[in-house]
Nucleic acid binder design. Structure first.
Lengths: 336, 336
DNA sequence: CATATTAACGGAAACGTTTGAGATGCACCA
DNA sequence: TGGTGCATCTCAAACGTTTCCGTTAATATG
């Protein structure tokens, strides 16, 4: 690998001058800087990332904290999409992405935060299903720039999908279609679940729709099995709803199977609504009516904000950025 | 951050001794090593990754080259799963994962290989849809340890899913069910596609099944739309097959929709077979009969092999490791 | 013309490690 | 006793940068 020293030798200047020239400092003449930049290019020079990091404490590396209890990890479509656009945006700005977790190093257990310190990441993005772990708190309370996705800590900037608005839009659509007997299989208790429920309630009140407690069972996200069971239970009740909101599109598959297994069909007998707008939901027939979270925008915004926090420490004020999604009308809701 | 110097000061020994003690060198007495290790732990010491890398040229970082033309990136379930287990296994061995691509740095375009050099990754795993790009060749011909997934270069070790065997198993099953009129919508031309076709042919010959050229259209992987069109075309033919092999489970959704749109049903009128065993395929009703690639094993093997190449350069002989998958019997194939 | 200012560059320390070569003390053997 | 070998530890250079400070020469200022 060609180093600054090689360039300095070839051009008869000091190493310091080469460094300054390549980094755009002012105290080097335009003539020599042009000459140095040119030969650096000719010789195929690239800075040594670790040497630079050692001096500057800047690695141009972003840590991704990505804890997912089910172990599905990258397989989780929402996370995968967000991460994908995060990565793209970060790379555009010259940053690389490294996965961060708690792990063993040299026989000693290292917490996630220690891992970040060890790797000297410039910033951290946290996207978890569970934000209540000690590992998360340690990172949140640390001194490395952080953005969180879909969870708000009051001292940190957060990018959140507009869950409240999403549910409102979906419920308004159902109401527009004439539905009043609406059930909602909730996701597991979390900040996201609360927001969605809030949006659901709010819209119900606005539209004068009565919310039955027994029509608000708590299930789990991304869990078709649980959703299958809960859907069946709803369909066996004394009074059955005409429209069922599923926890999300993936879980909805279970719900749809339950409806089918009860000898009913979507949307003629029962209307179904999902959440997420994952690819599959639009390949079903009928297409699932759902709300597509703007994952590309969420990821890109997270990256931009994080980098901004890193590069302009003075503007470090906490901020909550809400990203709207898009209503997707499928054919899974019957117009009464 | 506490450094070696801090420990050496506290314990009245030289920095060198601390370094050697912590790294398990032999020329330090058991007594002092124990003392040093203990105070290092007490003081919360972690080695500085970049300083160490600067000296040793070892970063304990693995580069992931992950080129996917459709831009689906991590969303591609096969890749996501493989990457997930790769990551887990690598972290177990103390390695971290960094995404590698071609990008701009300091105004100059950097190839993927240059990127690897810049970050000084210890090894690279390549998982692409297209192995014919210059970027891939440059990495393959470089001097950094490499393993490839699902593609074989003769100078590098490769982890490949047993595509030939998978297709054989599927075709044998179809034949066992009594099917003789079998169509196969192929994936896009690639090493993987060739292997699968080879397995298909081989099994057909074994079972005495005639292969009609018009029943072997070339479609694309993960493309429900194309598969939809090709399936329709097959169903409109003069003679129609009783069983259709789809490029993969994801594409199969398109095929299944086409069958439905033609007023036919699976498996009563047409049998369908997928490939991959992705989660959705087992949530459909009927479940899709398919072949699940052992993605956890593929990823873990890739990580282990790569690390072995890094840590034992003497054993650097090229190797091709074939990973078998598992046949999944669903309900999408009718027994004639 | 003397002095202050400025532009352009070099010297050298520092970042936190690793590592080979040397230094020290001690036991051992002839 | 003097050398040899060994165990244990220290010295110091090196990895490739960045950056503060100093130096030089040229130019501007009074």
């Amino acid at each position: 690998m060609v180093s600054l020293k090689d360039i300095s030798a070839r051009c008869n200047v000091s190493v310091a001058t080469v460094s300054k020239a390549l980094n755009g400092h002012k105290d080097v003449s335009e003539a020599t800087r042009e000459r140095l930049v040119r030969t650096a290019r000719e010789m195929g020079y690239f800075p040594n990332a670790q040497a630079r990091a050692l001096k500057t404490n800047r690695t141009f590396n972003l840590g991704v904290m990505f804890l997912e209890e089910a172990g599905r990890g990258l397989t989780h479509e929402f996370f995968a999409k967000v991460l994908n656009s995060f990565k793209t945006e970060a790379e555009l700005a010259g940053y690389d992405i490294t996965f961060i977790s708690n792990k063993d190093i040299g026989g000693r257990r290292m917490s996630t935060y220690e891992h970040c310190k060890y790797r000297s990441v410039d910033g951290i993005v946290i996207a978890c299903t569970d934000f209540t772990t000690p590992d998360v708190f340690e990172v949140i309370n640390g001194d490395i720039p952080v953005v969180t996705i879909d969870h708000i800590f009051d001292c940190r900037t957060a990018i959140v999908s507009n869950n409240e608005n999403g549910m409102e839009k979906l419920l308004n659509y159902a109401a527009d279609c004439g539905h009043t007997k609406i059930a909602y299989i909730q996701g597991k208790k979390s900040a996201v679940a609360e927001k969605r429920l809030a949006g659901f309630y709010k819209a119900c009140v606005n539209r004068g729709i009565e919310v039955k407690p027994e029509w608000l069972p708590v299930g789990d996200y991304c869990n078709p099995d649980v959703t299958y069971q809960l859907t069946k239970k709803l369909l066996k009740g004394r009074e059955i709803p005409t429209c069922i909101f599923m926890p999300d599109d993936y879980a909805a598959i279970g719900g749809l199977n339950a409806i089918k297994d009860c000898g009913l069909s979507v949307p003629d007998d029962i209307s179904a609504i999902g959440y997420d707008g994952i690819a599959y939901s639009q390949l079903l027939s009928p297409k699932l009516t759902t709300y597509a979270q703007d994952t590309p925008l969420i990821g890109a915004t997270a990256a931009r904000k994080l980098i901004s926090l890193i590069e302009n420490p003075q503007t470090t004020f906490t901020e909550v950025i809400t990203v709207d999604g898009q209503f997707l009308e499928g054919g899974s809701v019957k117009k009464l």
